[in-house]
Design a protein around this nucleic acid. Sequence first.
DNA 1: ACGTACTCTATACAACGTACAGAGTGGAAG
DNA 2: CTTCCACTCTGTACGTTGTATAGAGTACGT
Lengths: 256, 256
Amino acid sequence: MVKERSGADDPARTLELLWREPDRGGPRRGPKQGLTVDAVVRAAVELADSGGLDALTMRGVAQRLGVTPMTLYTYVPGKAELLALMLDAAYWRMPRTDHTAAPWRTRVAAVAHENRDLYRRHPWVATLPTARPPLGPGLMTKYEHELAAFDGLGLDDVERDAALTFLLGFVQSVARADLDTQAAVRDSALSDAQWWAAHAPLLAKVFDPARFPLAARVGSAAGEAHQGMHDPEHAFAFGLERVLDGLAQLVASRAR
Amino acid sequence: MVKERSGADDPARTLELLWREPDRGGPRRGPKQGLTVDAVVRAAVELADSGGLDALTMRGVAQRLGVTPMTLYTYVPGKAELLALMLDAAYWRMPRTDHTAAPWRTRVAAVAHENRDLYRRHPWVATLPTARPPLGPGLMTKYEHELAAFDGLGLDDVERDAALTFLLGFVQSVARADLDTQAAVRDSALSDAQWWAAHAPLLAKVFDPARFPLAARVGSAAGEAHQGMHDPEHAFAFGLERVLDGLAQLVASRAR
DNA sequence: ACGTACTCTATACAACGTACAGAGTGGAAG
DNA sequence: CTTCCACTCTGTACGTTGTATAGAGTACGT
């Protein structure tokens, strides 16, 4: 699985990079640097956008910048920190429309859609570990903005954080499922329909519908409704309604 | 990211393995096999249980069985298929208590808890891609059982599948967040509290609370309430209530 | 002019999954 | 019984990853 974002970091250095602290100390000796941290991050994001996290290798980023792999380590302590910078940059660039006047359901739904768009633009973001987030300006701005969507609902601070975490977890969950499907299609070179066509006749030999009546009926009904086994559009729309209804119940109980 | 479960499979062979089809064809030439597929799967599961998917290497499984790595390929076409077998075996072994008589909320909550227990017993299961699931007896039994929890609610087949997917997505989401946290603690050798203690004073230099008032207030409130940044127990309890309330709304609208 | 802090490069290592080639084994065919 | 060859198991090897380490070249402060 994903063993990214480890590495022996120096927290101070990482935070300086995240907040783009001006270079500490005076003028630098030796040759000028030919690149910038931002250029490295940009190249890395482009690479990950087009080929997923698998394509994001230090060698790949270096090649895209016309340098040797080890050169990157002059700009960034390691891959883990590069990922933190990429993630915070992606957060930073998210469009944040102001819905202050709108009803809360609209505001919260907007947050869900903003995150869905983030995952559409940068699919690799959905696969990154969320514990120990990059403590940069991007994350902070995002958090501030999204918490505001829950204004005036009578939730206390802990509930507000839990509600947001719940909402974001849902969106990420759908995004990951979607990604899994695309990845499966890509590296099996088989669409869901083709994959199923290859397996169905073989499965028929060992699968006894009488033993799994519900599974047989519901499974084929769901498979026909959306085509392919998973319809991320439907899963998102269906789930978001449930999430909002669930939160509505909490809001109602707090307003009482 | 996770590039497991790919590999150039022969679907027929994989299905035969999953359903434990008796060896095709007549008696075999050459030396008897010293192991069984089940033994290989068992060893692999033990390894993954104790050390996570990172520890699950063909070399590791082989060593645990006292053979050389390449020997495994006599039993299993590759790592992808081994993972499919492991996953189906884990599904197969899940305890499935019968709650036919209970009210639907209890039944659905039981499904959530069963899955949470699965992820507790086999954390690696939470990190596996879910598209293209192993079409074995374990998955089928699990699906049949879990669909039954939604009996008598007036949902059509497509809604029933969507509701289950939504529920399972939620449980997996919490399990993954939990795993991320444990992994971060393990390979940074820092508890959440220690990690925060290392970052807080440095962050204070660049983070302006006036610029992020909500984030500062809610973040610290949430951090204090649970200790550490993420309390999986609380996230599960809180989220499950919302999920059930959200589904209740759907059920109510269908019953009308 | 010189030393040294710095940038960039080349090489190397351990781990992974598994392709490939070979050695040994024992049931089926004569 | 002998012969054959399908089969099991092994040893070696390759390409890929992140990055440690050592060295070559550069240009600022003295």
